[in-house]
Each structure stands twice: as structure tokens, then as C-alpha cells.
Design a protein around this nucleic acid. Structure first.
Length: 466
RNA sequence: UUGGCCGUAGCUUCAAAUGGUAGAGCGCUGCACUGUGAAUGCAGAACGUUGCGGGUUCGAAUCCCGUCGGCCGACCCA
């Protein structure tokens, strides 16, 4: 009976071709983040369990992978450690721990796996990589604008052109719900229902409200507000045409902000939130990324540590999001007692890779063979000579990827192997060639074969390489 | 945490009428071609504990239960 060799549920092995894609995306992300002045950080996979508990909300608590106490305490079934659930809470812990040693504005990026005991689905795994950028120590909307700009640039560099950054604000959300007269304990339910408006329509949402015990008057007000938002699209189109300078997205956002002011009215925190959003959009305009932003009062985000702006990046062909983030001004304070404000954004590596794979967005050369040339072996006696020649090639042609066939198989087999791997050139050193100080170089694509002096091969191959 | 669909050789949106003997293609290995791959021909292997475990039946790939894995949707998220 063969042992089970599949990885654990929701976990994956990455074979070379998949890993090449992942590494390509990670490289782009690092390059972009570095260009915005973010610095790298890594933290342990495991955190003390109390570091994580109570930071993510009820659902989050449930999905944390807990680690049982070891040794004789294992029997108690008690957990004292846990795998990190995201990179934001570990950052907050780091800032609380090293606060005065870090720059006043700590801008860091972090690309590491996180673990969630969720049910796997399309683009969702139990172990996955988050690519975070965060900035601590400032309340300025410049931070939001900057992380939005950086994330946008990552996606643009990778070749995405149809993503949308939906932007909302916790305080604005609270203001809207309060203005509609939704009871405090029903606000979460109300948001879940409202979120389905475009799928199930006004009546469907009204039914959901009823099922969740949300009054018809409050629910009705809320519906009126959200139902009228799409109308702004048309108005925005009109405005954009009239003004020329203003993109449709910018016009829409201005209209949406205006509508929010009308609805939220005198709610103080809500009004401040709206003003905050207005500034973020304005700064994003200055950064040249405002046309990707869409104010969307319906996004909520489940993580409980957000206090201000919240955002999500999405593309049409993925139900979930490619990334999300927001401002969390008292998370660091939960560790140190000292309030340090912060705001950040996280891109999901596997979702980016998923969409890019489906759309064929990866560069061609990622799929190329593992080597540029395969040196064959003639027989057991000549193995050392093949090794020596391979070493010679690697030395004289920097960057050339040289593979050596390990067994003294028949030449036909060795060529077949090279062919199966897609290696473009094969070197054959038979007794005749060796006697003359030559090797045969076969071009596997054309089938042509040339006999060259050993010392000429490196230059010839370097030239032939794409 | 919840509902639907699915699981057959290494691979395939595979086949096997309503329970009655498991088939094909590709691939693989060898030979024609013991100094040349991707072509062609011939031969061959493993022909598959029909995901796994149990049940119903004279008899199960097929029906039932459980379990594992995958896909889709709800909820949640990256």
C-alpha cells in the first residue's frame, strides 16, 4: 500500500514551472516597493497565541492554526503558539517591540506565507503568500495614497490594466448605517445583505433584511441610498465629457463623496471620514492613480483592526479580491499601550499568479528549459572528460546554463532526454572528437550539427542564446 | 460553517444502455537505427485493489452510508 503523498489539505508543493512564475511576481513586487522607499522585513512563522487572538474578529479567531503545547503539557490540549494569520499583526508587534529603533515613519514590505484554517477554493489556500506594504507613524492620507499607488504600480508592471481599487472608510460606513437608523447590533448583517444588491436586487435584499431582523424603515433608507449610487456613473460620464481634464472615475468619486455628505449629514465621525476619503483621492490624483480608484460605500472588510480607510483591489474575472488593506491606528497600541498609527495593503500572491496564468500574462522565457546546453557522456571512461568540458563551458561563458547527462546511456537516449526537456543544444564528445580536441554541437531545433574546437564552443553558444 | 457536482491505467472535459467479463488514445520501454532526439513500423510492459473503507445484492465502476481529494456557489477572505 503506497503512502499518501499528497500535501496536506489546502497546502501545495511548487514544482519548478510554478515556482518560476511565483518568483517572477515576487521580484516585480520587491522592485516596485523598493522604489517607493519601503524596506524588507521578515518575522517568524509562529507567534505566541495571545499575540494573534482577538485581533481579527470572531471569524479570524476560529481560522487561526493553533499549535499544541509540547511535552507533557500536550495532554491538556492547550495551545500556546499559532501560525501567523497575516503579516499586519506581526508588524504591529515588531513596531511595539522595536519602536524607538525604527524610523519615525517605518515603511516596510514583507512577502511571506501565512496560514488560515479555511476551506480551500479557487484562489484560496490554507497556506498562502501575502505581499504587504505598510507605513507606520503617520495619520496623513499621503500614506493611503502611497500604498494605493505602489500596489497599482505592481499590478500595472505585471500587465494588469483592468483592476479597480474600491475605497471606503470605517467611520463613513458607521455614519451611513447610523443615518439610516440601523440598530448597532444589526449593522454587520445589514452590510452583508447590501453587498448582494447587484446580485439579488432590491427585493432580494429587502427579504434578507427581514430575515435578519432589520426594520423596514431603516433598511429602506439604506436601500435607497445604495440603489441610487450607480446612477452617479452616468452623471460622471456626462461630467467627464464636459470637463475633458477629469477622468470618469474621478468625476464619479467626487459625485459619490457629495452624495455621502448629503446622506451622512451631521454625523461627526462620518463627516471626518468623508473628508479623509476626499483627501486620499486627491493625493492619489497627484500620484496619477486616481482613475483606478472607486469610492464604494458597500465594502466592509471582516478584519476588526481597521479604524479608517479600507480598500480592496479586484479584477472582473475573480470573485474574491487580489488584495486589500486599510488604516489601523490602534493595533500597535494593543501591544505597547502607546498609540502608533499605521496603514497598509496586502496583495495575494496566488491570486495574482492564478489570474496571470489564466490570461497567459507571463513572459515567454519563464517557460524555457532548465539548461541551455546538455553535455552528453560517451561511455563510463569519458564521464570525467564530459564533466571537465562542462566546467570549462560554465567558466568561459558566464550565465550559460550547462547540464551534464549523468549516465553512460546510449546516445539516442541522451538526445531524447534533451529533446524532452527542451534543451536547445547538445554537445557530443565521441572518441574521434576527443582525439582531435573537438566536440560536436547539435542544434536540437534545426537538427544541424557542427564540429568545433573545444575552446570555440562557449562563444558559439553564447551567441546563439536568445 | 453550509449546499450542489465529480473521482476509472502515468495523462485524458475519456468509454463501458436502466447493477452482469473493464475498453481506447496518448505516453512509456525495447527493436528496425549498438555515433544522433522530435517521423514511421513492429513488439512489449504496468493492462487499472474502478480515490479509500464499509453496506445492499447471486453479482457493484454503476445503488446506499462514511471518509479523503477536486470543482462550483453561500459565508469569509489574499
Amino acid at each position: 500500500m503506497a503512502a499518501k503523498t499528497q500535501p496536506a489539505r489546502g497546502m501545495r508543493d511548487f514544482l519548478p514551472s510554478e515556482l518560476r512564475k511565483r518568483e517572477y511576481v515576487i521580484r516585480v513586487i520587491k522592485e516596485v516597493y523598493e522604489r517607493y522607499g519601503f524596506e524588507p522585513l521578515e518575522t517568524p512563522a509562529v507567534e505566541n497565541i495571545e499575540t494573534l487572538m482577538g485581533k481579527y474578529g470572531e471569524e479570524g479567531n476560529r481560522l487561526i492554526f493553533k499549535i499544541l503545547k509540547r511535552g507533557e503539557h500536550e495532554k491538556t490540549g492547550e495551545a500556546d503558539l499559532a501560525l501567523r494569520y497575516d503579516l499586519t499583526v506581526p508588524l504591529a508587534r515588531v513596531v511595539a517591540e522595536y519602536g524607538d529603533k525604527l524610523p519615525k515613519f517605518f515603511k516596510r514590505y514583507q512577502i511571506q506565507p501565512v496560514w488560515r484554517a479555511d476551506r480551500p477554493a479557487r484562489g484560496r489556500y490554507r497556506e498562502f503568500y501575502q505581499c504587504d506594504v505598510d507605513c507606520t507613524g503617520t495619520r496623513s492620507p499621503v500614506a493611503e495614497a502611497e500604498i494605493i499607488a505602489a500596489a497599482s504600480e505592481v499590478l500595472r508592471t505585471l500587465g494588469f490594466d483592468n483592476f479597480t481599487i474600491r475605497l471606503n472608510h470605517r467611520q463613513v460606513l458607521a455614519g451611513v448605517l447610523e443615518a439610516a437608523g440601523i440598530a448597532a447590533d444589526k449593522q454587520g448583517d445589514a452590510l452583508v445583505a447590501i453587498d448582494k444588491l447587484d446580485k439579488i436586487g432590491r427585493e432580494g435584499v429587502a427579504r434578507e433584511f427581514e430575515a435578519r431582523g432589520i426594520g423596514a424603515d431603516g433598511g429602506g433608507k439604506l436601500l435607497d441610498f445604495f440603489e441610487k449610487l450607480p446612477e452617479l456613473e452616468h452623471a460622471a460620464e456626462f461630467v467627464a465629457e464636459g470637463e475633458g481634464e477629469v477622468s470618469q472615475a474621478v468625476a464619479y468619486n467626487r459625485a459619490a463623496l457629495g452624495r455621502l455628505v448629503e446622506f451622512v449629514g451631521g454625523h461627526d465621525a462620518g463627516a471626518l471620514g468623508i473628508e479623509n476619503l476626499r483627501q486620499i483621492v486627491e493625493y492619489a490624483e497627484a500620484y496619477g492613480v486616481a482613475d483606478r480608484i472607486k469610492i464604494d460605500p458597500s465594502i466592509a472588510r471582516g478584519l476588526s483592526y481597521y479604524t479608517g480607510a479600507i480598500m480592496e483591489i479586484g479584477v472582473p474575472d475573480l470573485a474574491g479580491s487580489l488584495g486589500g488593506g486599510g488604516r489601523y491606528d490602534n493595533l500597535v497600541g494593543m501591544f505597547s499601550g502607546k498609540e502608533i498609527t499605521a496603514c497598509g495593503f496586502s496583495l495575494g500572491l496566488e491570486r495574482i499568479v492564478l489570474i496571470m496564468s489564466e490570461r497567459g500574462m507571463f513572459p515567454e522565457n519563464l517557460g524555457r528549459a532548465s539548461a541551455d546546453v546538455l553535455v552528453t557522456v560517451w561511455n563510463e571512461e569519458s564521464v570525467k572528460d564530459s564533466l571537465a568540458f562542462a566546467a570549462e563551458l560554465r567558466r568561459s561563458a558566464p550565465g550559460l546554463r550547462v547540464d551534464v547527462y549523468p549516465d553512460a546511456d546510449k546516445l539516442g537516449k541522451q538526445l531524447k532526454y534533451a529533446s524532452a526537456l527542451g534543451v536547445p543544444f547538445v554537445v557530443v564528445i565521441g572518441d574521434d572528437e576527443r582525439a582531435r580536441g573537438e566536440v560536436a554541437v547539435k542544434d536540437m531545433k534545426t537538427g544541424e550539427q557542427r564540429t568545433l574546437k573545444r575552446e570555440e564552443v562557449a562563444a558559439a553558444l553564447a551567441e546563439a542564446r536568445p
